[in-house]
Design a protein around this nucleic acid. Structure first.
Lengths: 340, 340
DNA sequence: TTGTAAGCGTTATCAG
DNA sequence: CTGATAACGCTTACAA
């Protein structure tokens, strides 16, 4: 056992002022910018170094009435949070622009009702100045609080019927899905199926819609296999179902790259070649896309840009500036590789 | 464009006191527990609801000299942070025990020097009461600050020569690697190779050491392929190198499940069967383990437990209690599936 | 240019 | 059991 390390009392502006032989006001001025003579400044800077002074966050937040921090919250069953290949990109993108503006991004994980309650409290207590919310659902208590206290916020993803006053940034799942399905059709495939994941969520439902739109009158509900999650194993499972029902199928649109990877695995086990026997396309352009043999043709989802854009939109709100009503959709180029 | 939403002034204990016809002290007592008459209590609780009062974090932190928050920081090149299948489990585990104790876990991402500087400042400014650090390296400024201000902290992973006063929790990479290699040898394989990843890091170096120890005099340096990262593509690459040098190889220990998955892919491309021609074992027991065909035999890494344990250890330090000197190693059972 | 002093919203001490 | 009142560490008018 080791004895607890006791933290020494932290130096305050008082200490610095004393050490530099000036008043606290002057110290504060060199820290926050303001009129101060060169000699006072250098004396104070030296004193700060000497006593190892770092401003106390709580005190500063209290008087300034802001925390200079933005929350990043993923409202998603936790397993998904761990697996979703986009989350990381979103976080990095958001953090980069937040960081550049000297904001601290704090990632809060919600994994229980207790978490929800605590975070809900924090959100309305000035803990952060704004929030970026991924995968919001209308009924979520966290969303309600944000709306109630009018906390600057933006949704990532396109929530169908959410508080309209909170803007969002995302992609057009319907249009992108339509586009890649059309591209797949253009390769001459005749019997195209879809492995639709998470159709209870907006992204999932929209991707299915896009698929249906692309096929138009040729759409056959019997050619879509629905699976609950955007993941590898469900991709394999969905593919097997499709194959069972329609052995002559020659093309498939998987709702995500992970799903597509699972599908390719299942196809191979079933003795089908890709893209020889069946062409497969995915969605996301995540690291999965280059893990499969052959590499996936897919829809590029600009995760980092989405994160950056949402960060920008919260900061604008914090500053009291205007923000796009409704939200913004970022472009999603199609990346054509070898799987179809 | 939408006009900025203006947050109304938040209610304070002052407002509540006025609304309930009592003093601020009494209000504070019902919030934090203390002697207060039933009628005063109910009047105050009603008032709190009515005015929508939520305590201000900054004010409370300031006077209480603590934030009731613990930082979770991953000091890892960011790409790894996104891919590492263990991080999620660690976070969830840590969050669960922190949450149960009413602590807020705040995940801070460090992705630039600017992040490092900012977080370094926050850490020594009372922003959090403690920190959990993943993948610490001795030279990191963040580690130095933690040591300097004696912030309660624990490392996840076994840092070789780090500040000894900061405890750690992790697993015994050497012993687990030795164990699974021996198990693989017991299946009768004669030419066993290893795809060693990230040997510049403790975990990577230790896994290689365990492998070498298991083989003893039969160890052949020519049978290890070193790759920089614990990931799928490097696994495939390493496997190909091994196959080129030693076509007759019949067993391989991959430094992680992701690496093993890549290896299996490469093996299949090369026309080898698993486990028929070559047996392969991995490390982590992550979701990769059941994504491969056949499923992976691997070392189970108890990520959630490690997270939970580290959370427990920071909280003990925060409370001023004693903590295991050095640190603790959690057990890593071998999970034997079909890949070897 | 600098010092002084008034808060920021809480909790905690200490009389009543 | 409750009400004043003094901190907590900092910023920011306002005076000097």
């Amino acid at each position: 056992m080791t004895t607890p390390r006791r933290s020494a009392r932290r130096a305050t502006v008082h200490d610095v002022a004393a050490a530099a032989g000036v008043s606290r006001g002057t110290v504060s001025r060199v820290i926050n910018g303001g009129y101060v003579s060169p000699q006072a400044r250098s004396a104070i800077e030296a004193a700060i170094k000497r006593v190892g002074y770092v401003p106390n966050t709580a005190a500063r937040n209290l008087v300034m009435q802001r925390s200079q921090a933005v929350g990043f919250i993923v409202l998603e069953p936790h397993m998904l949070f761990l697996e979703d290949p986009n989350i990381g990109g979103l976080m990095l993108g958001a953090n980069r622009t937040l960081s550049a503006a000297d904001y601290q991004m704090v990632n809060l994980v919600v994994d229980s009702d207790r978490d929800t309650a605590r975070i809900t409290r924090y959100l309305s207590s000035g803990f952060v100045d704004g929030a970026i919310i991924v995968s919001a659902r209308a009924h979520d208590p966290i969303i309600k609080v944000i709306a109630d206290v009018a906390l600057p916020a933006v949704f990532i993803g396109h929530p169908s019927d959410l508080y309209a006053q909170i803007p969002f940034v995302g992609i057009d799942n319907v249009a992108s899905s339509r586009a890649i399905t059309e591209r797949l059709m253009a390769t001459g495939r005749r019997r195209i199926g879809m492995i639709a994941a998470a159709v209870d969520r907006d992204s999932g439902a929209d991707r299915l819609t896009g698929f249906r739109e692309a096929l138009g009158s040729r759409f056959d509900p019997g050619l879509v296999a629905e699976v609950p999650l955007y993941d590898f194993s469900h991709g394999a499972e969905g593919m097997n179902r499709l194959l069972e029902r329609t052995p002559e199928l020659d093309g498939v649109f998987a709702a995500s790259d992970a799903v597509a990877a699972g599908a390719i695995e299942a196809l191979r086990s079933a003795g089908r070649t890709v893209p020889g026997d069946v062409g497969v396309v995915g969605f996301d352009d995540s690291s999965w896309a280059t893990r499969t043999r052959p590499h996936l043709s897919t829809v590029h989802q600009p995760a980092a840009d989405i994160g950056a854009r949402s960060a920008d939109m919260v900061m604008r709100q914090i500053r009291g500036e205007e923000v796009e009503r409704g939200g913004v959709m970022l472009p999603t180029p199609i990346v054509w590789r070898a799987s179809a």
